[in-house]
Design a protein around this nucleic acid. Sequence first.
DNA 1: TATGTCTACTGAACCGGTTCAGGGAGCGCT
DNA 2: AGCGCTCCCTGAACCGGTTCAGTAGACATA
Lengths: 341, 341
Amino acid sequence: MTVTINDVAQAAGVSKGAVSYALNGQPGVSDDTRERILRVARELGWKPNLRAKSLSSAKAFAVGLVVARDPRLLGTDPFFPAFIAGIETTLVEHEYALVLTVAASADAEELAYRKLAADSRVDGVILTDMRVDDSRIALLQSLKIPAVTLNRPETTSPFPAVCMDDTEGIAAAVEHLVSLGHTRIGHVGGPQSYIHGRSRRLAWQNAMSKAGLEAGSFIEADFTAAGGLAATAELLRSAQRPTAIIYANDLMATAGQSYAQSLGLTVPDDLSITGYDDTELATYLNPPLTTVPADPLLWGRVAAQQLLSLLGGAPAEDIYLPSPKLVVRASTGPAPSMPKN
Amino acid sequence: MTVTINDVAQAAGVSKGAVSYALNGQPGVSDDTRERILRVARELGWKPNLRAKSLSSAKAFAVGLVVARDPRLLGTDPFFPAFIAGIETTLVEHEYALVLTVAASADAEELAYRKLAADSRVDGVILTDMRVDDSRIALLQSLKIPAVTLNRPETTSPFPAVCMDDTEGIAAAVEHLVSLGHTRIGHVGGPQSYIHGRSRRLAWQNAMSKAGLEAGSFIEADFTAAGGLAATAELLRSAQRPTAIIYANDLMATAGQSYAQSLGLTVPDDLSITGYDDTELATYLNPPLTTVPADPLLWGRVAAQQLLSLLGGAPAEDIYLPSPKLVVRASTGPAPSMPKN
DNA sequence: TATGTCTACTGAACCGGTTCAGGGAGCGCT
DNA sequence: AGCGCTCCCTGAACCGGTTCAGTAGACATA
């Protein structure tokens, strides 16, 4: 039925071992023999059997991604699909596959990594949504699974990181708003247990103080539309109501914008709004959203490259991707001279 | 290092074969011996080696999903992440893994299936986004990969389908609008090469004629925000401008709604709008979107169950999931007595 | 007691590769 | 001629399971 290395060996009149050497480009066969073996293999239509290769070489030829997210909320995050697509563009060139796991809880997440390790399903993993004091670093070390992290965690990590600075974009948003005359700029952030939730808040804080402004109100939300709405409602209720709000992602910004409009406020005349991610929808909102592109496609591609070269024995060095630049659209405008109340 | 079946055999004082029989619950060992072997295996902490199992049993213990979508647009579709999460909830209970592939073009898609087959990466696949006259049916048959399809394709297919009727929801949207006095109801659909693009258009058409109305304008768009906007612009430019538009997904509906608002139209006073999917954001738009839930989580879970039972040798029978019901929110309202122009 | 049947188990082949020890041939050097 | 070295290749072990043919022993049957 299927052609094995044995068939090739027989047809070429050599031993199994010689065929293996020839096919893998290893020394141990003369150029003549090698060429003959390769020709015979081609003629017979030989294809390597991945399972056999896996068993004897103790490799999976696959990398893993564990997405820890409430399944019901997973669909709302535009990051992952594009990120996965980026990973794939790299993997497909290297005959690697992607094994994807979705974990609903922290326990399920740990279990997922343990399963991947126990079954040797993957040769390495990519860690996203890095958390402050992330327990996965130690877990993966103990499981002896190589990894690549998105951005460098604050705790010591032996794994290379692929970094994309998000503080610059947030700082640019603050500066942009300040230049428009805003002084009360609030921030609706993501969970502060995530390093990207935290770094965006700090970026906002620093940019505010750099501009000589008080840091204004901060609300910790959860990257969901519902959370964005609730946070917006709270900010707009406050006595010193902000004239501009910087959101940590587009989804919250969109919900916030819709909510403000439903109160009769005009964006950007009464309230300026910025997001983060630059989702496709951002351009098509009314008004279109000022935001910062996240480029998950690039991030995924580079992270996979980094992981593969790590698996190939390359030293673990961090890679820095260019910082995304603020995209100004119509959701930001001059600060109102007399804010509505 | 790791405990193998050999170690267990030696420790239990039996042969390798006996251990295999005992661990797999097969006949050929006495109850006493079986129990002893199981105890020893437990004591030694034996874990089956998936790679060895794969090689000798010629199974991959994994299922595949090939997503054919432009990577840049993948992030905009809320269906996939939730669908994948649904698949996972089933797989995780059966020690199966999910191998995910993203293909940008039709060629890449076919290649992806061929790769999965050549490498025997998966034991079966799930087909989404079924197309009219879908070439994948024949391809998978020739590759001898079992499959499950989402909805039954029109061409003869030997694979079981997991069906969720989307016509009922669209019909309900039409009836809802008709009851509000609308007579000019347009439809912005997905590509008609997809069966769900087609079935939604036909559902709209049928419901219109059932209500005694002319089928109004239809625009074939592409499920993207940009496409939704362009289609909306075209509809609103037309002489017999619709007072309501039924979109084939939320993303296009959202873009359409924003566009209409940017023209100075009020939703729903001047234009009623319905979507499809019931994404998280739909609730938080201004106004909140009347739409039809798609329940990708359930769909994924059931599709995976169906595939696993097919792999287990069960007969290929279609499964019908309950039809989702229209969710009425504020983007639909009474038809304007004197439509704005 | 001889024969047949069944159960419980063993030993080895097998899945399809990788890898390693070892051996024969050819060559250069003394 | 004898020695050592390198090159090329073979045969077998190995990865860790599954599976099958064969066999020893217990037991029933004639």
